[in-house]
Every structure is written in C-alpha cells, then in structure tokens.
C-alpha cells in the first residue's frame, strides 16, 4: 500500500499545532504572574524550579488533585459543558490562522496553518462568539446570584462589542477583497506607496485597529473589561461555584483566548508572518519558513505582553461606561470607518 506522506504530514501538523498552543498556556500563566509581580514591585513565583519556572506545572497538578465538586443546586449537564466550551472555542480559532510562509521540502508542502479556509475570518468571528456561551452557560447553570450576574454581564458585553468587532473586520475584508486569511496577509506584504514600508493594516486602517483592539479586550474578558468575572464585586462571577479542573479550564480558555486574539490581531493588522528584510514572499525554502514562524511568534509575544501589561495597569470599567463605549463610540466609529474606506478605496 502506498502511504500518502503529504496527508500524514498535514495530519501531524494539525496535532503538533494543537499541542503547541496547549504548551503556550503554562508559558502565558508564568509570564502573566511574573510580569504582574514586577509591575507591582514584587518578585513573583520563584520557589518551584529555577526562577519559579515550574510554577504553572505545580498549579496544574494541584488543580487535578483538588476535589471536583458539583453542588446539587446546579444544572449538571450545562455546568460541565460550560468550562469545556470556554476551552474548546478559542483553541479552534487558531486552526485557520496562517502562522508562517509555505515551505517545500523534497516536494512535500508544509503550510503553517491547520486549515486554509476560504471564509477564514467569518469562521473566526463565528467560533470566537461561541466562547461566550461558556461564560453564559457557566453563569446560569451555577444557580448562584453572583454567577448569574456574571453570565448576564458576559452576554450583554458580547452583544455590545461583537458588532463593532464585525464592522472593524469588514473594513479589513474591504482592503483585502477576500475573507481568506492568507489573502489578508498577502495584501499586507506589499510595499506602501512604492516604498519599503509594508502596507500593514495598522498603517492603512488605524481606526479599525483601535476599534478591534478594544473589542479584543472585551472578547477575551480581560481587564479593563473583565466585568463578567469582577473578582471584587461578583466574587469570580461566572466561576464562583466551580472547583478543581473545571475552574482551571476557564482560565486555560482565557489564556488561549489571549493567545488566539493576539494571533488574530497580528494576522489582520500587523502583517502576519511578514517582516520586510527578514521574510520573503514566494520563497519556499525551509529557512524562510522557519524565519516567518519566528517573526509571527515574536509579534504574538509582544501583543500578549501588551495584553498582560494593560491588565495590570488599568482599573476596571464601570458597567454603564462599558456599554456606552461599545454602542456610542466604537460602533459609530466603525461605521464611519467603513464609509471612509469605501470612498478612499474607490478613488
């Protein structure tokens, strides 16, 4: 029997990518705790392993061996389903993100992307909003007042921000003329006005970038928009009643969401894997492919740092301020940006 090695490579790639992003979670946890500590003038984790590097491993082991308690007042099916959804949805988003340039080794093609979907960006919007269900179901099924409020806040927050996010994405689709992620990156690899400055969407679409960045923070439920969690007012909000690994899975989902949102922002606005002078378009050598993945990883790392930095710098918004920002500022701004893009694009 002839083995189809191309198929084997592509399947192995899907598996590697999944476990790759899974490995990123402990790194993000460690980074968050260490950066937070230095911002607050502390040392952070430094007991478990060298420089406290094994702290996330210890955390994981501890959550596995804690009592997994399902109180009798909860809706059991939804209570179990909610953390799983909060974890699966952000992981799925990464499947359509191109994180490197095509490589060709001995005739086999390695495209650093799990699934080159022609409606990639719509898939992302669809799956990303699925993640909100985890929080809403978790909040509702817990049968606890704080959790219910947290879940409601999560849903209302999602409702207020998803439109602005969708509209910001529309202006990106307009510049690329396609909903395929690879085409969106492709447009950004060209030079701007005949110079070597790349036409990254952050330069050509600054309004969309700001709108998308704000909505990305709301979508990942991170400070300054972490009202669904609100530790000081809702005691954890949607995960008040959770314990053990179910509790940890909400956090794994949150860090995955931070990772995929950063990857998404890099793809949509920061030129994806492209950096002038380091990666070349159309060069399918192994070196170029590895460099492109490295460039992508560096950009994502910087954005993740930005997410963490913001979290430990800004205070939480008040609820009405958040709704006001979403409906009265970001939404009109995004609408204005679409008309502006259309007029400038047709000139």
């Amino acid at each position: 029997m002839q083995i189809n090695w191309q198929l084997v490579i592509d399947i192995a790639k899907a598996v590697i990518v999944f476990f790759g992003i899974l490995t990123c979670i402990p790194i993000l946890v460690y980074a968050e705790r260490k950066i937070c500590a230095y911002i607050q003038d502390r040392r952070g984790p430094n007991r478990v392993g060298p420089l406290g590097l094994l702290q996330p491993v210890a955390d994981a082991i501890k959550s596995f061996f804690k009592e997994d308690y399902t109180p009798s007042h909860v809706d059991k099916v939804l209570f179990t389903l909610a953390p799983a959804m909060a974890f699966i949805a952000p992981a799925l988003v990464f499947a359509v993100i191109p994180f490197g340039h095509l490589m060709e080794i001995k005739g086999y093609k390695i495209l650093p992307q799990v699934f080159d979907m022609n409606i990639g960006i719509l898939f992302v919007l669809m799956i990303a909003s699925l993640g909100g269900y985890g929080l809403i179901l978790g909040g509702w099924s817990s049968n606890n007042k704080y959790s219910l409020l947290g879940g409601l806040r999560a849903s209302a927050q999602m409702l207020s921000y998803e439109i602005a996010m969708g509209l910001a994405v529309i202006s990106i689709i307009m510049t690329a003329g396609s909903t395929r992620m690879a085409d969106i990156v492709g447009v950004q690899t060209q030079g701007l006005w005949g110079t070597c400055i790349p036409a990254w969407n952050i330069i050509t679409q600054p309004i969309a970038f700001i709108v998308f960045l704000c909505t990305a923070f709301a979508e990942t439920n991170r400070l300054p928009f972490d009202l669904a969690e609100g530790d000081s007012e809702l005691i954890g909000g949607y995960h008040t009643e959770y314990s053990s690994m179910k509790f940890a899975m909400f956090f794994m989902g949150e860090y995955l969401a931070v990772l995929t949102m950063s990857a998404l922002i890099v793809t949509l606005f920061l030129g994806g894997w492209y950096f002038p002078g380091i990666t070349e378009v159309g060069n399918t050598s192994l070196l170029n492919g590895i460099l492109s993945i490295f460039v992508f990883g560096t950009k994502v790392g910087m954005l993740v740092f930005f997410f963490i930095w913001t979290r430990w710098t800004l205070p939480r918004f008040r609820y009405d301020q958040l709704m006001k920002l979403g409906w009265k500022i970001l939404l009109p701004l995004a609408l204005f940006n679409i008309i502006l893009t259309a007029i400038l694009g047709l000139r």
Binding site: D10, I11, K13, A14, V15, V17, F18, L22, S63, F64, F65, K66, E67, D68, T80, P83, A84, F87, I88, A91, L92, A95, V114, F115, M117, S244, M245, K246, M249
Partner: peptide, 25 residues
C-alpha cells in the same frame, strides 16, 4: 484536518474533566 483538530480539542477538554473527576478526593 479541521475535524482532527476539533476532535483533539474536544478529547483534551473531556480528558481533563474526566481526570480531575477521577483524581480528586
């Protein structure tokens, strides 16, 4: 590939839930 990826994600989530159910006191 998308289906494999999705199944992996679901299996991991299910596995973690099951493991903590088994291991916890």
């Amino acid at each position: 590939f998308l289906i494999i990826y999705t199944l992996l994600a679901i299996a991991t989530a299910g596995g973690m839930l099951f493991a903590s159910y088994l291991l916890g006191p």
